[in-house]
Amino acid sequence: MKVVVCIKQVPDTKGGVKFNPDGTLDRGAMLAIMNPDDKAGLEAALRLKDQYGAEVTVLTMGLPKATDVLREAMAMGADKGVLITDRVLGGADTWATSTTIAGALRNMEYDLIITGRQAIDGDTAQVGPQIAEHLGLPVISYAQEIKIDGDKVIVKRQYDDRYHMLESKMPCLITALSELNEPRYMTPGGIFDACAAEITTWGRADLKDVDDGNLGLNGSPTKIAKASDKVRKGAGEKVTPESPEEAVAYIVGKLDEKHII
């Protein structure tokens, strides 16, 4: 069984976001991490390796620096790493990103493709389902559990007020929620091997059956009209009352003024 996990290197928004003087995001000043949903997807794949001897390949698209997350994944137990990098692929929206990744996947063998549900930088949740669409595969999003049953996969799929147990034939694409599992740590031996491991690097020419018009900034149907720091509502009043009674009188007075009570 062959599993390909698509992972993304993202800035860690938890540690606070840094901006350049012009208001754009200062990615260089922020710690780069493996996207949490993707890491859960990788862990799910590694459990299939533990249980069924699945071969796990990690695939990412990005700058050459993104090999860091491939090596991290390999130190956790992934067998192979593939980086897609090329200047012409830069500035891609979710459509152009998914056509690129689908173009790479057409060169690969897989029974299962796992992606994270969404990445913490864009939060779109679009690339996984779009890859499945380009490849003509069934897709199951928001996976909370993944099990294998012969040539089928059984997935617990989360919805707002329920879950469905779904069964799909393989090959299929699954998008993983970070709640799926607790990802394992890298092992010292794994880190040693991963440092020395060879990473396959592909460029534009290695993508199969993809039109230039569907790649990079030029092939992106969505265009940014404006980007800015969020303008927040200004602060109102702040008081430090002497006693709880005074605090209560203040709040009740304001609610009355606003006709709320």
Binding site: T13, V17, D123, P221, I224, A225, K226, A227, S228, K230
Partner: peptide, 17 residues
Amino acid sequence: RPAFGGNTIATIACPDN
């Protein structure tokens, strides 16, 4: 739409499709 955990906000168009 907001992005980066709500830290930035972007306005997007889809002019050619």
